[in-house]
Amino acid sequence: MSTARPIKTIRVKRAFGAVVEGEALVSTEGFSPRYDLDRWSGLISRPGHALEGHNIKGRILITPSAKGGIAAGWAFYDIQHKGIAPKAFVFGVTNPVMVQGAVFAGITITEGWSMSPYEHIRTGDIVRVDPQKKTLTLIRRGSPAASAPRG
């Protein structure tokens, strides 16, 4: 855990899971583990996706909405077992499948935010998600280079 002083805290509405800290991956577009993700590498593979070329592995994925259907429920468990799951999903709005899938896989997940994270958090920044306190906190700024896609 970082001891750096938090510089911005956003409240989330609903949350599940362990406290996690890691590099943010910020998307302006919704996310589906079935439509957008290469489920063998963790790369966002759908042509034209806002995060195309980025890898979700070990990241804290901040995304406005959930896309896709029921099949996503097994997909999170699958990527968790393949070692390519993100540390947390931070959704603006989500649907039950994402929540059921994340809980089943033991991945931290939150929904709703008190203010838009897009003005405060960039890809590469280090953030902390605390489901008990229902907070998303910017711990420290990442380097601009971190926002470039990398496999």
Binding site: R14, A71, G73, D78, H81, P96, V99, Q100, I109, E111
Partner: peptide, 29 residues
């Protein structure tokens, strides 16, 4: 899941329909 959504109780269901095939769930499922 119920806690996440603030559910106050459970309700009984009379029928269940589930997705479960190898393409969708993979070896871990």
């Amino acid at each position: 899941v119920g806690r996440f959504f603030g559910a106050k109780r459970f309700v009984p269901v009379s029928n269940v329909h589930m997705m479960g095939d190898i393409e969708v769930m993979g070896d871990s499922g």
